[in-house]
Amino acid sequence: MSGAPGPALRIEDVHKSFGRTPVLLGIDLTVAQHEVVCLIGASGSGKSTLLRCVNLLEPIDAGRIFVAGEEITAPGVDVNRIRRRIGIVFQAFNLFPHMSVLDNVTLAPRKVLRLAPAEAADRALALLERFGLADKRAEFPDRLSGGQQQRVAIVRALAMEPELLLLDEVTSALDPELVAEVLAVIRELARGGMTMLIATHEMGFARDIANRVCFLDAGRILEEGPPEQIFRTPRAERTQRFLQRVMEAGRL
């Protein structure tokens, strides 16, 4: 799949409403291979919905989405095949509570990729090792700290070897002292060249890690650019106000 043409992700004029409430009002966004793009914006600005649309967890009302040149929103597309190529990590971890860490990570490789259990376990253990979780392989999720659970969720997504990783406010449910360990994992992934689209409230982190930052406001991308520009010299007045509020809250 690496030889596929075009950008890793291209979103064209995507609209989405929940009932009568419009959430996305024409989003255009392109993510190049190995690029890290951060989505910032107030709660309810549409960041999470956009990620869920890209993973086809929410059907879109209008527009098109392409992954490595293939239109994934075309009618008749096999959604299970598309989702294999796109990993997503949720704010609330969503680990499977009735399975051990190892089973959480190997379930999809075993059932979707049809790997032999031993091979799936070997690959999962290598990933768990890489993120310092090998000693937790037999634990159940409720025995882990929030930071550990979120790292397991990231490993679970990585086990499918996705071309694109979507991170949906993955540190928002964590105690402050646990945020760092999860951000370290994401930095490590960025260094490894993983293409990522990240919705986040961690402005400092976005500034460090992103190649590009997009400011979402009321269902539109109001402003996008390199992090230095967005954070130092935001052009739009709404972006300035948003960053002002974030700064007052001590989050930047």
């Binding site: 294999r84 499977f96 999809a108 499918m160």
Partner: peptide
Amino acid sequence: SQSAAARSLGLSQWQALRYVVLPQ
């Protein structure tokens, strides 16, 4: 969200039910 997590990994609707939802 349990079903969504399973589907996001590429499991089919039936697989998500069989391995994630029904056991719980």
